[in-house]
């Protein structure tokens, strides 16, 4: 009887690896059932999970203002936006599931603090203007990060991102419009808008991650075409986009070193406080504890509902058809 030796396995893997590298090099998409290096799979799971977690934790700071939205029009917009974030979380968990990791498993890791979400959501939304600043700056930074992900080498992730980017196009605009209305409003409203921009500007710049020379996963992710641009490249692009937008808003970006550099054809900007970044990442941000506690509570308090529906389904399986068609 023939036995499969380690050498055989290595030979098979080498053939697979060659096909994988060729596909990535040719800008083809990797699909769920294709062979892929374990490290590629692990990197994707980590990144998609973090992205999904960010969507659902990111609901909290904005949901904080739904019940106080100052006009019914704004209330409808904010509700639709927070709902989109739940939907985007769902798309992303779906993408992660194609890699053989269940949503339950990922949520458990989030709740246990073993997987991260974007640190930006550990900052509080203190005034209504923060809703606008999140839309303009936080969603703006997210979009700058996400648009290149629509061409990510992993098919399901890329497709989820296409859908998300399409749906998110209104998120940034509504934030900008909100701030513009405040900036052109009463003195108190203008001050509220400026204060929000002052608080959200630097954390937004941190959203692109540590500088390239300190980013541990960047090089490999770029080689695998999971990532298409470096952290610093995207951060610079974002700053250049924001400067004229801030001017049009009539608001100031809180950086005395921010100025146009004719030679580089880009803006110079001040040093980012990376101590704060690492501190918040480690759990010392103003809302880390609060966000994860609320998330865990919603999950725990919902357990009996999920169990009830599962129990009902088990009792009534005969009635359940495997495929159902209906008009939506």
């Amino acid at each position: 009887m023939a036995t499969v030796t380690d050498a055989d396995r290595a030979a098979v893997d080498a053939v697979h690896a060659e096909a994988f590298d060729a596909a990535v090099a040719a800008d083809e998409r990797i699909e769920p059932r294709d062979w892929m290096p374990e490290a590629y799979r692990a990197t994707l799971v980590r990144q998609i999970a973090q992205h999904a977690h960010s969507e659902i934790i990111g609901m909290q700071p904005e949901a904080n203002w739904i019940t106080r939205a100052p006009s019914l029009r704004r209330k409808a917009i904010l509700m639709a936006k927070v709902q989109d974030e739940a939907g985007h979380g769902l798309y992303l968990y779906s993408a992660a599931e194609t890699l053989g990791t269940s949503r339950e498993e990922l949520l458990d890791k989030l709740h246990a603090g073993r997987q991260k979400y974007s640190s930006i959501f550990n900052y509080p939304t203190l005034t209504w203007a923060d809703v606008g600043a999140i839309g303009w700056l936080v969603d703006g930074a997210a979009i700058t990060n996400q648009v290149p992900l629509c061409r990510c080498s992993y098919g399901p992730y890329a497709r989820a991102m296409v859908r998300i980017c399409k749906e998110e196009s209104f998120h940034q605009r509504q934030g900008y419009e909100l701030l513009l209305t405040l900036s052109r409003g009463t003195e108190a409203q203008h001050a509220m808008a400026q204060d929000a921009v002052n608080r959200w500007w630097w954390p937004s710049l941190m959203m692109f991650g540590p500088p390239d020379d300190e980013s541990s996963h960047s090089a490999q992710s770029m080689a695998w075409k999971i990532k298409r641009h470096s952290n610093d490249e995207l951060r610079q692009r974002f700053v250049d986009i924001c400067v004229p937008q801030a001017e049009a808003l009539g608001l100031t970006l809180p950086d005395p070193d921010l100025r146009w550099n004719e030679e580089r054809g880009q803006h110079d900007f001040g040093a980012i406080d990376w101590t704060e970044f690492w501190d918040v990442l480690k759990g010392n941000g103003p809302c880390n504890e609060q966000r994860i506690t609320q998330r865990r509570r919603a999950h725990d308090e919902g357990a009996w509902v999920r169990e009830a529906a599962a129990a009902h389904a088990a009792k009534h399986t005969t009635r359940t058809k495997t495929t159902t068609e209906a008009t939506a």
Partner: peptide, 26 residues
């Protein structure tokens, strides 16, 4: 219903409750 945002028992229900709340607000 909007008070449920971020507190629903499962993600799918976040979306469903928000849909109903948005219909009613309209």
């Amino acid at each position: 219903l909007a008070e449920w945002a971020g507190h629903a028992p499962v993600l799918e229900e976040e979306v469903a409750l928000a849909n109903i709340a948005l219909d009613l607000l309209g």
